[in-house]
């Protein structure tokens, strides 16, 4: 092979092959392969060997025991339900707070807008763990926040209902509250992006044709921001459903969420196939929302 043909090969095939091949190979080895291992693991049998599983030998090659347990054991079904309900409620409240904030961001002056946007993004850059931790401080029985809420409660209700403190920690309430707190930026940013792109003259046109501001919002702004609502909603819902840190720190150990269950099955029960099966089941549940998300994200980013 002459130098020239080698050079041509490099330009035509070699360079793209390198650009595509290196990241491709990396992701196949460190993402796809481990994931396939998990899928295979989910149909293996638990043993007391190290590693604690077996495929073949005296055990069946494919055992669907794990999946059968997920569908029949109330513990797993409850965990799935708890996760989905908690994630849905958190998504709803993120939307409830996030929408007006995002809309407000598009209405303030430009200099204010940059400052406020930075304030929205800032917590996102600070440690996730510490944001959860900050609420642990507030929700504790002796914290100023709990004391303040307790006093307010005792002031408002009949004396028989008075409490010494409000039991916030280790409950689904705490999980949802902290999820709303940590995921709110994920709701605000896509919403802001889709609202900011709306043409303000459309609002004026609706007003000009006789709509009051509230009506303008319902007829013009809201319908056009649906892609943003769905993108933001999925961006909160998907990670919230698989959340591990928040339920571990502030959740109720009696009604665990899926993420915590996977981790417990794996590390404490040493039941790798079971952990793998729950993981696969969670992913299957997430396929729908993910597809909705990618469709609407493309819509929210593209033109109309």
């Amino acid at each position: 092979m002459t130098r020239a043909t080698l050079q041509r090969w490099l330009d035509d095939k070699g360079w793209p092959a390198f650009l595509i091949g290196l990241p491709y190979l990396w992701l196949v080895v460190f993402f796809l392969l481990p994931f396939l291992v998990v899928v295979v693991m989910s149909v293996a049998t638990k043993t007391t060997t190290a590693p604690p599983f077996s495929l073949g030998g005296e055990h069946p090659w494919i055992s669907l025991d794990t999946y059968a347990r997920i569908l029949t054991d109330g513990l797993y079904l409850r965990a799935f339900l708890t996760s989905l309900v908690n994630a849905a409620i958190a998504t709803f409240f993120c939307l409830l707070i996030g929408y007006p904030v995002a809309l407000g961001l598009t209405r303030v002056s430009h200099s204010w807008r940059n400052i406020l946007l930075m304030l929205v993004i800032l917590p996102f850059w600070t440690s996730f763990l510490l944001r959860v931790y900050a609420w642990m401080g507030l929700m504790g029985k002796t914290s100023w926040f709990n004391v303040m809420l307790t006093d307010a409660w005792n002031f408002l209700v009949p004396i028989d209902w008075a409490v010494r403190s409000i039991p916030m920690m280790h409950s689904n309430f705490a999980v949802i509250l902290v999820m709303v707190y940590t995921y709110l930026p994920f709701m605000i940013l896509p919403l802001y992006a889709s609202l900011e792109r709306l043409d303000p003259t459309l609002d004026e046109a609706a007003m000009d044709l006789g709509s009051r501001p509230a009506r303008v919002f319902l007829d013009v702004t809201l319908p056009q921001s649906i892609p943003g609502i769905i993108a933001g909603g999925m961006l909160v819902f998907i990670p919230a459903a698989g959340e591990l840190v928040i339920p571990t720190l502030v959740g109720d150990a009696g009604s665990p969420m899926i993420g915590r269950l996977i981790s417990d099955e794996f590390s404490q029960a040493k039941d790798w196939p079971m952990a793998a099966a729950i993981a696969v089941a969670l992913l299957v549940l997430m396929v729908g929302p993910t597809m909705i998300y990618s469709r609407y994200q493309a819509k929210a980013e593209g033109s109309t």
């Binding site: 998990v38 590693p51 794996f266 998300y293």
Partner: peptide, 27 residues
């Protein structure tokens, strides 16, 4: 497959990524 591989880790729950890598590394 390539575009799937570069988006999947974004939405994969961290627990699952973590466990799959751990099992992978052990094996």
């Amino acid at each position: 497959l390539f575009s799937g591989l570069v988006t999947a880790p974004l939405i994969m729950p961290e627990v699952i990524t973590g466990i799959s890598l751990l099992i992978f590394f052990i094996l």
